[in-house]
């Protein structure tokens, strides 16, 4: 029986690269991601660096997962719209994106999702404020969430702009 370990961690959506880095640091220490859930990561004992782990925001799509599996990647699981893959290092380098265009379009999808959620919270918050004081706690919560999400929008905007500047000169 393979030795297992579960860790609980929280990552903001706009910090998905940090999450991926952490998962690969774990893999480098011989703990490879085997299952994912909300803030829950279950690792199994492997050789150090036996696997590379990648994650991506992509609507659930069996055709896509099939495609990834045919290239040697293993599907670990998903949390909401995020899917997690790993691939044995001996099968070669593992990246999901290899050019600026596809990186930008991935970031733009995340950006759009957070922006929509942010606006929804803002509208609900304002609506609750107007309705009356019975809902004021909810309203304040909505507005706080909206502010946080807008911060995330700004972070992603920065990443997208950086890559777009790069693309002026190269692929």
């Amino acid at each position: 029986m393979t030795e297992r370990m579960t860790k609980y961690r929280w990552f903001w959506v706009w910090d998905f690269e940090k999450e991926e880095r952490w998962l690969n640091e774990m893999a480098a220490n011989g703990w490879t991601l085997a299952e994912v859930g909300y803030c829950r990561y279950t690792f199994e004992r492997t050789e150090s660096n036996e696997y590379t782990v990648r994650l991506e925001m992509h609507p659930y799509d069996e055709d896509y997962i099939n495609f990834m599996e045919q290239t040697g990647a293993e599907y670990i699981g998903r949390v909401l719209q995020w899917i997690y893959f790993r691939k044995e290092s001996r099968l070669g380098r593992f990246d999901i994106f290899s050019d600026l265009d596809s990186r930008i379009s991935h970031l733009s999808k995340i950006h759009k999702m957070i922006l929509t959620l942010g606006f929804a919270n803002l509208l609900i918050g304002v609506a609750n404020l107007l309705i009356g004081d019975a809902n004021s706690f909810t309203a304040v919560m909505n507005l706080l969430v909206a502010t946080l999400l807008m911060y995330g929008v700004g972070r992603l905007q920065g990443k997208i702009e950086y890559l777009e500047n790069e693309r002026e000169l190269r692929e």
Binding site: E56, H58, Y64, F67, M68, T71, A73, R93, D95, I96, F97, S98, D99, D101, S102, S105, H106
Partner: peptide
């Protein structure tokens, strides 16, 4: 090196 997600798109 062509990555699988880029290729799929």
């Amino acid at each position: 090196h062509l990555a699988a997600g880029t290729l799929y798109g």
